[in-house]
Design a binder for these strands. Sequence first.
DNA 1: CAGTGGTCTAGACCACGGG
DNA 2: CCGTGGTCTAGACCACTGC
Lengths: 252, 252
Amino acid sequence: MSAMTKAGEPRYRRIAEELRTAIADHAYGPGGRLPSEEALAAHYEVSRGTIRQALMLLRHDGLVTSRRGTRRVVLHDAPVQDFAEMQSFARWARSIGETPQGTVIRQAWHPSNPDEQHHLRITPTTPVLRVLRLRHLSNRPAMLERTTYPEPVGAIVEPLPPDTVSVTEHLERAGISVADAEHTIDLIRADPEDAEHLHCAVGDPLLRERRRSTDPAGIPLEWSEDRYLPGSIAFVVHNSLASTPLTRHLNS
Amino acid sequence: MSAMTKAGEPRYRRIAEELRTAIADHAYGPGGRLPSEEALAAHYEVSRGTIRQALMLLRHDGLVTSRRGTRRVVLHDAPVQDFAEMQSFARWARSIGETPQGTVIRQAWHPSNPDEQHHLRITPTTPVLRVLRLRHLSNRPAMLERTTYPEPVGAIVEPLPPDTVSVTEHLERAGISVADAEHTIDLIRADPEDAEHLHCAVGDPLLRERRRSTDPAGIPLEWSEDRYLPGSIAFVVHNSLASTPLTRHLNS
DNA sequence: CAGTGGTCTAGACCACGGG
DNA sequence: CCGTGGTCTAGACCACTGC
């Protein structure tokens, strides 16, 4: 929504946007049927292939079904949350009407440990920047973030003011953008450090999200372990036969 | 791996499978570069479009990168877990070498409550089948599952023996298959019923997964709330600019 | 049976990366 | 500058759904 449709955007993305809006405006459903691909192609004056690309986006977002033989069916209303919002705590907070804050508690360069070497795919000799950051949601502590950056990214993060609200947005301005991320979600107990900063008791349960982000070339940009106070957050995943990004693992 | 390449499978899927195997055999990387689309098209004797469909699959699984201007780069080794395994507790358990078990504790038809009506998209008058099921992993209690089925599915589930290991597989045999699912993951405290069956204390933290599954036409097949003992499980999500199924929500 | 989405082809041009 | 992937076209045939 908002931002005028950018001219530089590929045609199929703009069409997907229009369809999203139409669906959000209940032009078809839910439960309603979309026009056929043929009809959409005629309407937008593009080839069927382009329409299919647009529909693929809606499909992966769980907005419409797709079955051979039948018109596409509109599912529930749009969740409308994008990659940028998942990637950035600050952006997410703003999108739900909360005020994000961040405070760096500790930050220093260290020789990387084996765990970091594995996740960031670096060699043992390389130093990394470790940052401990407390995140607030509208003045209440919500999450404690332990992030490790490899050298080039760390060099950009290090000089930022300790109360920087969005590190991600600074990195983007520096030309560093995230293309992929892998998240592991489980439950953990607060250690003394967690307890101190999140104002909870040692041993209290926390929701843990470990995350590795990579750039478009597949080079790791950060390895982070975030611990959320319970009650403040839930993670929502959509998956389908078409794309299955969610897996279940034994905690080891 | 294993199963002979089915002839009925579309060409691009078979190619994706071959590429997966090649990657798993470290034919290129990790860090290595895939042949160009042009070269792959020539090798498999298909058009570039078909190759791109195959590569799209690997892309969504986070197996390879893709950037204009450069060859695709192989990322980490294959996670190899598919939709079927995420959808079925029994299949997942077997895939990690554990023995799954299930016991129905309670099962009965009820008039649907507003929550169920919303998630299953049914009218207030429709009855639903509520099932309380305890899941074991190699003889240890691992998860307590509260599932609600709408009428047609419930009618199939009801007569199953209480110790049925895989309900999903029975449904498939009856021609009912899941195409989409939405999962919400958060943290919750054990209530007396949880505590009794999971052999934990009331108030102990549990990892909760709420799930709605729908069939290819978008019709809800089940609404379930699963509570896992901590330490036994983690959820892993992969997302990218290309597809973002993961979102973060305020718990309300 | 007609209509629809799934697969596939053989081209084309462009935007970007890296030498 | 060249090679690469990203976008797009205009066709074709098939598999399936639902009448």
